[in-house]
Amino acid sequence: MKKSMLEFTVGVFMIVGLVSFSYLAITVGGTDWFSDQNYKVKARFNSIAGLKEGAVVEIAGVRVGKVEKIKLDKNEFEAEVLLSIVNGIKLQDDTIASIRTAGIIGDRFVNIKPGGSDETINPGGMIIETESAISLEELISKYIFESGK
């Protein structure tokens, strides 16, 4: 009687733990354990200033994937970014990837603007058209420089 009560309590405790863990891991942490329904595409940028691995990839403001990996192309001195995109979202080969900032001091993310072509990018392919990060400092200095002229 007492023993079964104890076991029941511990059982409830473990279930609560498991549920909490799933919430934290899946919803909050955003693991993709249960979905390898992802595919990868590459994109090159002149500058990605401030973009971090794990940053969000959005189309029209909706989350469709994340930044998997960032590395430097040593020949071209360009940033090569590996994006993982949810399956079922087809990107046309004239898609434009650009790096944006949420608000003025918010996180950087990759925004994808769909194109109009009939051809789609295959998994492992490359987004050719990109727009680099807009640097606030550069904009300001440019403004001062030009107005001074």
């Binding site: 891991a25 919803t27 909050v28 942490g29 955003g30 693991t31 794990g54 989350r63 996180d107």
Partner: peptide, 12 residues
Amino acid sequence: GMYNSVDWADVQ
């Protein structure tokens, strides 16, 4: 905001 900034690595 929380979902976007918290990663699986943080939970780990």
